[in-house]
Design a protein around this nucleic acid. Structure first.
Length: 286
DNA sequence: CTGGTCTCCTGATCGC
DNA sequence: TGCGATCAGGAGACCA
């Protein structure tokens, strides 16, 4: 899937097509890709049926915001639609005549243009909330801080509060929101920290470097339009170019761009992890 | 709290 | 060209 850079680039590429546009109709192809919530008594949420209205039909789109890998479309009515792309999801804009691609699960009509949610593997999905406030309080509050704005100070504090290998912590969206398998490896390489290093053993100056590396790696990838390995495309269907700049991801066995020694790979947190054993320092013990 | 394993689902790729 | 095994930008559930 799309990690933070892909979702952020998608957000920016969708904006010109959606802001200020009225949603004439919203149609859901299969009900199990969407989930809706309404307010129940005592500030709790209850699951309700996903209707066209909850999918923003009849509203005008006011803004698009993002936290981590989640994208939220805000309507002038206050209602919110959250899009999670999972591994293979995409949101694309096309004309109303063309036949939607396979695995298109939701279609919004905005006059001439049409918005499509397509997701072959169906690890992604749509969720609706009555308000941004409820989205923030009930869902985004469970996520860590957005990785694009992570400060050294904040990361240092968080690293001290967990006892896990750094790679595992970085992949945990509750720890830090937005980093996935590609950019975890890229940021660790940039900051010269080995993936199995225990988080609390990373000194403050290294944590500062890691925070800067995360912002750098994500920022660069956003500017390159995200990484396209298989099926990521932006609103217009354009793939990203960031994969060309990966220093370690997908380069196991190839020479390190810094020292030319072959990059190592291993499975950490059930994910293929690639790093340079000589450039990235380790301290495994807790 | 931790990590490890399994699961959801489809499609691309690789080796035979 | 076919076929099975393996792997994929994610993440939640379950278990020890």
């Amino acid at each position: 899937m799309p990690e933070l850079p892909e979702v952020e680039h998608l957000r920016r590429s969708l904006e010109p097509f959606l802001i200020g546009r009225r949603v004439v109709s919203a149609k859901l192809g299969r009900s199990d890709v969407a989930e809706s919530f309404d307010v129940a008594a005592s500030d709790r949420l209850r699951r309700v049926r996903t209707t066209a209205g909850r999918l923003l039909q009849g509203t005008t789109i006011a803004s698009l915001i993002r936290h981590g890998k989640q994208l939220a479309i805000l309507a002038d009515s206050g209602r919110v639609l959250v899009v999670q792309l999972g591994m293979s999801g995409s949101m694309t804009v096309g004309n109303a005549q063309a036949r939607p691609p396979e695995h298109t699960h939701a279609v919004w009509s905005l006059g001439q243009t049409r918005l499509l949610f397509t997701d072959p593997r169906r690890f992604g999905g749509l969720t609706t909330y009555p308000s941004v406030d409820l989205l923030r309080r009930h869902r985004w509050s469970l996520l860590g801080p957005d990785a694009l704005g992570i400060t050294g100070k904040e990361l240092t504090t968080r690293l001290a509060g967990t006892s896990r290998a750094i790679k595992i912590a970085l992949l945990d969206q509750g720890f830090l929101a937005g980093v996935g398998n590609i950019y975890a490896d890229e940021a660790l390489f940039e900051a010269r920290i080995a993936p199995e290093t225990m988080a609390p053993r990373i000194p403050a100056d290294r944590a500062e470097a890691l925070a800067a590396a995360i912002r750098l790696v994500l920022g660069r990838a956003i500017n390159a339009g995200g990484s396209t390995l298989r099926n990521y495309v932006d609103a217009s269907g354009t793939p990203g170019k960031a994969q060309a700049g990966h220093a370690v991801y997908g380069r196991a066995g190839l020479p390190c761009v810094r020292c030319q020694r072959p990059l190592r790979s291993a499975i950490i947190a059930q994910r293929t992890t690639v790093w340079c054993q000589s450039c990235q320092a380790t301290s495994k013990r807790r």
